[in-house]
Simulated scan of single mutants.
Amino acid sequence: MPMSDEERRLLKEMELGLIADDPHLAMELLSGYPARRFPAGLFPGTLAALIGVVLIVAGAGLPAPGAVVLGILLLGLGTCLLLGPTVLARSQGRQSTG
């Protein structure tokens, strides 16, 4: 069943409204290639941070200072993987302007 002229006009108005409201989303939808919604280091960073927290808690309850140190290192690694590109871009921006 073909669209009526009124339906075509409304669809065109909605399309133009989307382009005006959110041009980035409109270009993403028109290209057919959606942008990645999650950073690349989300899964490994979260896993490393969680293992680090478990090691810190387990090491604090046991006489195992090595587990606490390893846990802190893994927690730091996980944080760097999660926030790495953002933090790196900010620090490079400060260096180039200063």
Rank of each mutant, 00 (worst) to 15 (best):
R90Q: 02
L75S: 08
L88F: 14
T79A: 08
D21E: 15
E7Y: 01
R94E: 06
L73I: 12
L42Y: 04
R9Q: 15
L47A: 12
L77A: 04
G93M: 13
T97N: 08
I72E: 02
L82N: 11
V57C: 05
G71V: 00
R90E: 14
R8H: 08
T46V: 05
G71H: 02
E15I: 09
V69L: 06
G93W: 04
S91Q: 07
E6A: 03
L81P: 09
L74M: 03
V69W: 01
R9Y: 15
S96M: 05
L82W: 06
T86A: 14
L16I: 07
P65A: 00
A58V: 11
L77W: 05
L62G: 06
T79K: 07
T46G: 04
L75I: 00
A60L: 01
M27A: 13
S91N: 12
G84W: 08
M3P: 00
I51S: 07
P85W: 12
S96T: 15
L42V: 11
A20K: 14
Y33N: 10
G98S: 03
P39V: 10
G84V: 06
G59V: 04
D22T: 00
G32M: 01
L10C: 02
L30C: 13
D5N: 11
A89V: 03
G76D: 01
A64L: 10
A67H: 10
P85A: 09
D5W: 11
L88V: 10
A67T: 06
L77R: 02
Q95I: 15
M27Q: 14
P39G: 00
F43Q: 08
S96Y: 05
P44A: 04
S91D: 12
A40V: 06
A40G: 05
E28C: 11
G93C: 11
Q92I: 10
P44H: 05
A67W: 07
M14K: 09
E13D: 12
R94M: 14
G76P: 04
A35F: 11
A40M: 03
L29T: 09
M3H: 10
R94K: 15
L70I: 09
E13H: 13
G71R: 00
E15H: 06
V69I: 15
T86Y: 12
R8A: 13
V54D: 07
E15G: 05
V57W: 14
A67Y: 08
A64N: 09
L30N: 11
L74T: 03
L62N: 06
T46S: 12
